[in-house]
Simulated scan of single mutants.
Amino acid sequence: MVNVVEWTRLEPWRVARGRTDRDESVIVKWTGPHASGSRDEAWRVRTEAAALRFLSEDLGAGLAPRVLAVDLATGRLVLEDLAPRTALDGLLRRDGAAAHADRLAAAARVRGELGAITAGHAEAYYRRRSALGPVDPAADRLGRVARQRASGMPSVPDVPVPGGVEREFGAALDELADPGPFLVLSNGDAEANNVLVRADGHADPRLIDFEFAGFTHALHDAVPLYVPGPGWLSLGGAAEAEIHRRALAAGVPQAEDDGRYGRGLAAACASYALARLTRLPVLDGRPAGDDSRAQLVATLEAAARAAEGALPRLAGWCRRVAAALRRRWPDADRDFGALAPYTSRR
């Protein structure tokens, strides 16, 4: 029994750092109604509790915080406090990437290790997850793929979609829908804000925020190493990507096959970029100079580089869209290659 006697909320999330009656520091998370007010989000606690206990109790993996207590009735979760670790993205913004090369490498490694350790264990995870409430493994695997298949290619003025591009888009979604040996557990968001590291000495990383966890294609978690996420205009070099691939291959040996890895990576990066492209109408309404516009251009161009070997037509289309957006938004016509690694979006 864990009795939390005091806590301080960590804004703006439903997260608090608390102390127990044994004077132990813990993290408390809770749920509430969806922002739209349309549905309850208690499933988030069920998913996170199941995923974290699956990792620590079923697989003996120390990659994430341990669950100390869970109360499904109130939607509360009490977790191990991983302090003094801190979020990697904050360190990168504060000090720059050069100061944290070892931590970037460690973050890439732990993401790959998550895939390697969980590959082949989907059935065991879903047994644990289903004991806490209804779950649909197919929805975890196909959610984003099904949405993209239903909506089709994004529409961009003056950039037609030839049939060859459509076919490669379909092939990318087919690749992601059938991961085969690449089916692994993901926390659902592999960005740097969900990796905690020690700021001094050995990085000793941990992954957090498993509310959207599920088994899906392993190379979704590689995308942030090739394509800048929403918070960034640039990324580091290829070293972290190769570290992730080697760590993944320890449990998914097919990751060493350049053809299979390349197809999965191309599909994941292209799918991610096209999902971001659906924000075009919103970004059109932003004022000139808003970095979200430049960030979309950087995303499309990085995804094109990652996809050009396996999906050359789709990669070419992404480049044409990026060029059209550079013309459409002169403020976004920037030389991203001249930026320091992990330059943040303002």
Rank of each mutant, 00 (worst) to 15 (best):
S151Y: 05
E301N: 04
S234A: 12
G133E: 09
L300P: 01
P330Q: 00
S344L: 03
G259T: 14
G170N: 14
V78R: 01
T20I: 14
G120F: 04
G133K: 14
D95S: 14
E11W: 10
D204Q: 14
A106V: 10
I243R: 09
S234V: 01
S36K: 04
G309T: 13
E211W: 07
P205S: 11
I117G: 00
H100P: 07
A16H: 10
G112K: 05
A218L: 14
D200G: 05
L235Q: 06
G231L: 05
R93P: 01
L52I: 05
D23G: 08
M1N: 02
V159Q: 01
R19L: 14
R93H: 07
G316P: 02
I243P: 04
A49E: 10
L314I: 00
N3T: 15
L79Q: 11
Y272R: 09
A298F: 05
A322E: 00
P137K: 12
G32T: 08
L176D: 05
E57V: 03
L314G: 06
P33E: 12
L88S: 14
G289E: 03
D290H: 12
I243H: 05
A49I: 04
R206I: 03
L277V: 10
N3G: 07
H202K: 05
A107M: 06
L265P: 07
A203Q: 02
G115D: 03
R127T: 14
L196K: 03
Q148D: 11
L296K: 00
R141N: 08
T20W: 12
H34Q: 10
A49M: 11
H202T: 10
T278V: 15
L59A: 08
L314K: 07
A250Y: 00
R345F: 01
G164V: 07
G337N: 03
A105P: 03
R286Q: 15
A138S: 13
D290K: 00
H34D: 15
N193Y: 06
G309F: 00
